[in-house]
Amino acid sequence: MNQANPSILQDLIDRAFEEDVSDGDVTTNAIVDESQQAQAIWVAKQQGVVAGLDVAQRIFEYLDPDVIWEPKIKDGTWMGQGSEMVILKGQARALLTAERIALNVAQRMSGIATITRKFVEAVSGYPTEILDTRKTVPGFRQLDKYAVKAGGGRNHRMGLYDMAMIKDNHIAAAGSITSAVQSIRESHSQITVEVETTTLDQVNEALAAGVDIIMLDNMSTEKIKEAVQLIGSAAKTEASGNVSLDSVKEIAATGVNYISVGALTHSVEAFDISQRLTYIK
């Protein structure tokens, strides 16, 4: 899995420390001696998939470049409740001051990876892949999507620049699906084109226009199955709209290629991780 672009990650870490620490951790700096060393252990307080450990390491290294980082588990691995995730040793001030920033990132990323794994497992046995969306926290897009991959999901487009997604407002502006697709093909001949459809008439028009992917948005499972049979191998199919763990298996059974799930990233339940610290005498 590819981690976030290094410059984007560094900017994120810089902003996080400016936001949380600014010109100093007044509590820690007043109580803990600058020379004090400590050891910390990260423990999973629930079961799930880990993601974001490399990012957490970078966060601690921001304050202590010599911190010793000993991961006990790799990103993308399922861990049980009570599992030790990482042991770190270094300056006590750094381990205390960077703790919340590092935990916030790893808890969010592990939460995304965990829910993604649940969706992936729910559709196992079907030739269907789980996709993420652009419903991410601004600035965290690359980390959120990395976490989806750690959970076994697949990234959809990274942004507005790497794929054309024609939605209802674009269709209204162009006058038709056909015109919208033609405009895209004329300006970006090699780009992947997907169109959002809500009716079988729109599916037929998208097929005639020769799009690469047809999104079946908020359709019933019966209508999705009918659309998938209509499309055949002429285009890839993606089901979208209010997908849940309760409904995803039934949707996969229609034969759709992809199911996109906004909840993977827009409604994250943070994974519970604790940092246990002991001072080294």
Rank of each mutant, 00 (worst) to 15 (best):
D168K: 04
T197M: 06
I166P: 05
S260P: 13
K223C: 08
N169K: 05
I191R: 10
I184V: 15
M215P: 02
I251Y: 03
V228S: 07
G232V: 10
A234K: 15
A253N: 10
S187P: 00
A235M: 04
I214L: 06
A234C: 04
S260R: 02
V228Q: 05
A209T: 04
S189A: 15
Q182C: 05
K236R: 14
I184F: 02
K249S: 15
S179L: 11
A252M: 09
Y258Q: 08
Q190L: 14
V203T: 08
A172F: 03
G255T: 13
V243L: 05
T192F: 12
S179R: 10
I251T: 02
K167D: 07
S240M: 00
E238T: 12
I184Y: 04
Q182L: 14
A180I: 03
I213H: 03
H188P: 00
L216D: 13
V248K: 02
H170L: 08
S187Y: 06
D246M: 14
V203C: 03
Q190F: 14
A209K: 04
G232D: 10
M219S: 07
E250T: 15
I166G: 03
T192D: 05
E186T: 10
A209R: 04
A239S: 14
N242T: 03
M165V: 11
I214T: 05
V195T: 01
S247E: 08
V203E: 06
L216P: 02
D217E: 11
S244G: 09
D201S: 12
A206L: 09
E226F: 03
D212T: 08
S189G: 08
V248R: 01
Q190N: 15
I166F: 02
S247W: 00
G255I: 09
D212I: 07
V211T: 13
T237D: 02
A209F: 03
S179P: 01
G241R: 00
S183N: 11
I213S: 05
G255C: 09
D168G: 12
S247T: 15
T237N: 02
N218W: 06
V261K: 01
E205T: 14
A227E: 00
A208I: 00
A206Q: 04
E226L: 13
Q182H: 11
Q202S: 08
H170T: 07
G241V: 00
S176H: 10
D168C: 03
Y258E: 11
K225I: 03
I166L: 11
E196T: 08
Q229M: 11
A174Y: 05
I177H: 08
K249W: 03
L230K: 13
G175Y: 09
V243M: 13
G175D: 09
A164Q: 01
I224A: 07
T221E: 13
A239L: 12
V243K: 00
S220V: 13
A234R: 15
E226S: 14
S183A: 15
Q190H: 14
V228K: 06
A173R: 09
Q202A: 11
N218H: 09
H188F: 07
E196K: 06
I177L: 12
N242M: 06
I177T: 11
A235S: 15
N257C: 09
I259C: 03
E238G: 04
E250M: 12
T237A: 04
T254C: 13
V261I: 15
E196Q: 09
K236I: 12
A173Y: 06
V228I: 04
V195L: 01
A180W: 07
A208L: 05
K223D: 15
L200I: 09
E205M: 11
A172D: 14
Y258R: 12
L245S: 13
